[in-house]
Simulated scan of single mutants.
Amino acid sequence: MPQIFTASADTWLRAMLLLAVLVICAGILLIGGYMDSSYATLVGWVRDQPVPFSHEHHVRGLGIDCRYCHTSVEIGPQAGLPATHICMTCHSQVWTGAPMLAPVRESLAKDTPLQWHRVARVPDYVYFNHSIHIARGVPCVTCHGRVDQMPLLARAEPFQMQWCLDCHRNPAPNLRPPDQVTRMDWSDWDNHPEQHKEYGALMVKAYGIEPSKLDDCSICHR
């Protein structure tokens, strides 16, 4: 009876199976690495804006509170992007002829809104409410980083589901006094956690926050 397989067939089969396993493992590592990379999370990336607005200048330099421009952050799901009239409150008197502010003046003249591009955003299928986070004392820096140190706004956090779940499952360390949520420098808390460790736990009880329910799918996917 003729031999169907050559003597080396078994070796080739083993080699192909090994190669397939290596390719699969490499693919998993590649995908995992990509998902954690800045190319996927966009952490540290900036976006082109109609005006090169500097949070560093306006927040740290001039001391403007976040809520001055983001007017609905305390009362609605969205923080709100600055309307032209907010910009012109100051720039009708200062830097009135600055070339970089031409889009603002044109927006006012034509009565058309500035087309700001969101830097920090969750996917469209995710429900997020700014006001509830502000009311419970989650400070702006938790999600947006030290914007007072950003000449151009960059994404500070990945806004991936695991990142959100980590906070939902243990919100206490991220809670601060609600009347100070726009404060940028929390180094006295971060560098001395032993002095403030009880605050978050007390606020979780005071607000009736139930972390066991905050990772339910319906909280964010509605």
Rank of each mutant, 00 (worst) to 15 (best):
residue 3 Q to R: 14
residue 7 A to I: 08
residue 10 D to S: 11
residue 16 M to I: 05
residue 16 M to H: 05
residue 18 L to E: 07
residue 21 V to M: 15
residue 32 G to R: 10
residue 34 Y to P: 00
residue 35 M to Q: 15
residue 37 S to E: 07
residue 37 S to M: 03
residue 38 S to T: 15
residue 45 W to Y: 08
residue 47 R to P: 00
residue 48 D to K: 14
residue 48 D to S: 12
residue 49 Q to K: 11
residue 52 P to H: 09
residue 54 S to L: 04
residue 58 H to T: 14
residue 62 L to F: 12
residue 65 D to V: 02
residue 66 C to R: 00
residue 67 R to N: 03
residue 67 R to E: 03
residue 74 E to W: 02
residue 76 G to V: 04
residue 78 Q to E: 14
residue 79 A to Y: 08
residue 80 G to R: 03
residue 86 I to N: 02
residue 87 C to T: 05
residue 89 T to P: 02
residue 90 C to P: 10
residue 92 S to H: 14
residue 94 V to S: 15
residue 96 T to Y: 10
residue 98 A to C: 05
residue 106 E to G: 00
residue 111 D to H: 11
residue 112 T to Q: 14
residue 120 A to S: 14
residue 120 A to M: 09
residue 122 V to S: 10
residue 123 P to H: 11
residue 125 Y to W: 15
residue 136 R to Y: 06
residue 139 P to G: 07
residue 139 P to V: 05
residue 142 T to R: 13
residue 149 Q to P: 01
residue 151 P to M: 07
residue 152 L to M: 09
residue 153 L to D: 01
residue 156 A to I: 06
residue 157 E to T: 15
residue 159 F to W: 13
residue 162 Q to V: 03
residue 162 Q to I: 04
residue 179 D to G: 05
residue 184 M to W: 05
residue 186 W to Q: 01
residue 187 S to Q: 12
residue 188 D to G: 02
residue 193 P to T: 11
residue 201 A to N: 03
residue 203 M to V: 01
residue 204 V to Y: 04
residue 209 I to F: 05
residue 209 I to Q: 01
residue 214 L to D: 07
residue 222 R to H: 10
